[in-house]
């Protein structure tokens, strides 16, 4: 059993949380005592931070639409097709026909990479996230 110190994903308070890891599964969450925001406390969402991680509803394989249905495919197939379509539509619209939505739930590093991808590769500034929602 290990306890891994991380940051809560739910609200902007940013509590310090320990995730309890047992045999490759996250089985619990508890507050950090010394963290300046959590100070030994979490709200009910924080105490149940781990509940969704092993949900049976998690997506675990790439999906692609074939004959109107989403069916499991390999990573290569999904990535190749996505790159081909974004490249094709980007080139034909000069980047203007592509829109990218990033996420306030993803990390800073991922947000940074996605805006770099939009601007440097897809050549569009059509990137936003739901800051205002």
């Amino acid at each position: 059993m290990r306890h891994v110190l991380t940051t809560c994903v739910y609200c902007g308070c940013g509590c310090g949380v320990y995730l309890r890891e047992e045999n490759g599964r996250v089985t619990g969450a508890s507050p950090s005592r010394n963290h300046p925001v959590s100070r030994g406390n979490l709200c009910v969402k924080g105490w149940h931070l781990h509940d969704f991680i092993h949900s049976p509803k998690r997506l675990t394989t790439p999906l692609m639409r074939k004959n109107g249905e989403l069916v499991p495919v390999s990573w290569d197939a999904a990535l190749d097709y996505t790159a081909q379509e974004l490249g094709r539509i980007g080139a034909s619209t000069n980047g203007q026909g592509i829109g990218v939505l990033s996420s306030a739930k993803c990390t800073n590093e991922e947000n940074f990479l996605l805006q770099k991808f939009s601007r440097a590769v897809l050549k569009t500034n059509n990137i936003d996230h739901c800051a205002r929602l």
Partner: peptide, 17 residues
Amino acid sequence: LRGQNNVQGACDMGALP
């Protein structure tokens, strides 16, 4: 008070048009 956990970060990182 920013709503979601990393709204501040997504703005800081330029995920904005």
